[in-house]
Amino acid sequence: MTEFNDSVVHTPPGRMRVWSFRPFTWVLLPVLAILFQVYVPRFFSFLSYLELPLLVTVYFSIMRRQPPAGALTGCLIGLAQDSLTFIPLGMYGIVKTVIGYSAASVSLRFDVENSGLRYVMSFGFFIAHQVLFWALSHMLLGAHDDFKLPQTLIAAFLNGIIALPLFQVFDKLKSEAQ
């Protein structure tokens, strides 16, 4: 709880740090996340709730703190995810582009290393991701399924929980950008 008492809203510009990753990490993490998405729910169907590609997108975006970079990261991860599913290419791409951009924009104003904030962002961006995807598939593809709010809330909660340790693992791979 103490972390919540910290000032998470205003990060003095001087304290804002930008992190960078090795190119290898840039490639490996998204690929692993997508592979996980493809492979693991086959054996543990309850894990299909996880949206690891989204979490990776959010993580990279908030650590880089550059909206264009966030958007690009989201775009690439989303397109990769699209290419393995059988919906038109660009659906996950667009959604993750927006999420990446927003996450990076948000990170400009907040302390992204605060666990509480990380949880809130994972939770919020998961919901945003699902809502955006649902809205896009309605608007662009003419889909007519209903939005499943309770499931989305539960999944967002779980993703948030998973995000905390996951992000800490990812933290080990980062290095401060010059």
Partner: peptide, 9 residues
């Protein structure tokens, strides 16, 4: 079977 296609289908 080496995976399930994630997404809508």
């Amino acid at each position: 079977i080496i995976g399930s296609a994630p997404g809508v289908q």
